[in-house]
Write a protein that binds this DNA or RNA. Sequence first.
DNA 1: CCGTATCCGATCCGATACTG
DNA 2: CAGTATCGGATCGGATACGG
Lengths: 138, 138
Amino acid sequence: MKTRAEYTCPLELTHDITKGKWKPIILWQLGKGTQSLSSLKKEINGITQKMLIEQLKELIEYGMAAKKSYEGYPLKVDYFLTPRGEKMLCAIEIMQEIGIEMMIEDDRVDFLKKRIFCSIVTKKWVICSKLFLIIIGL
Amino acid sequence: MKTRAEYTCPLELTHDITKGKWKPIILWQLGKGTQSLSSLKKEINGITQKMLIEQLKELIEYGMAAKKSYEGYPLKVDYFLTPRGEKMLCAIEIMQEIGIEMMIEDDRVDFLKKRIFCSIVTKKWVICSKLFLIIIGL
DNA sequence: CCGTATCCGATCCGATACTG
DNA sequence: CAGTATCGGATCGGATACGG
């Protein structure tokens, strides 16, 4: 993952961090609660262990996730969101809604019915979106 | 830009569309209001005309932006956000806040003071940023 | 002023094999 | 179970030149 030495706009920094293929879905999964590497791997369709660890490392580096390692065998490590990660999740939840909209429009409703995408729509989101609408004065 | 034939989660579709280097900043600029290609090019630091047109085309293809062309010379074309683009902008505004947070933490406050990121400043943003600064105690 | 086409290096990401 | 190392193909994005 590459960040730049100079940014014109802070949102570009956030975007550089999160633009990779797997980061949003990892954050989404972590939004469900603390998880081990192996449970993340099981939940996230198609990801390799290499990519998962690499992306988690970067999320940790930029303060969106954290981990806790326990001593002893078998090894146990927990990954979870930081407050910044939770905030990023608010943005991702909007993207989830937009994705759903687009899939409905493209007549992919069949797809929508078969799956409960990542167990959508936490209570958190409802609160977040309401607050935001209040802030921007709607 | 590449989208997949199958998605596990709708947010991945939105992310595939917006993950490119320039799309968030273009959406941000369009959030200030309808603009011509040349004014966008002037506002967005470092973008080439090729990238700008290419990315706008994709934003239009996925219903986040639209354009209106006028007859006659000199040519005149207006680009603007659709409702879906405005919704995406909500996500991007959160990313802007996160970016500001990170830059403050990294002692890049100097940066923040010198620039009005992206010549920002829709009213919406002013409200948001003030609130934010209050929240973080500045 | 707006838009298209081509070429090429940078980077991202998947496959795979290996370690504690 | 958690993590590291390497390699090569696919994409992305910058430079540049041309066309309506």
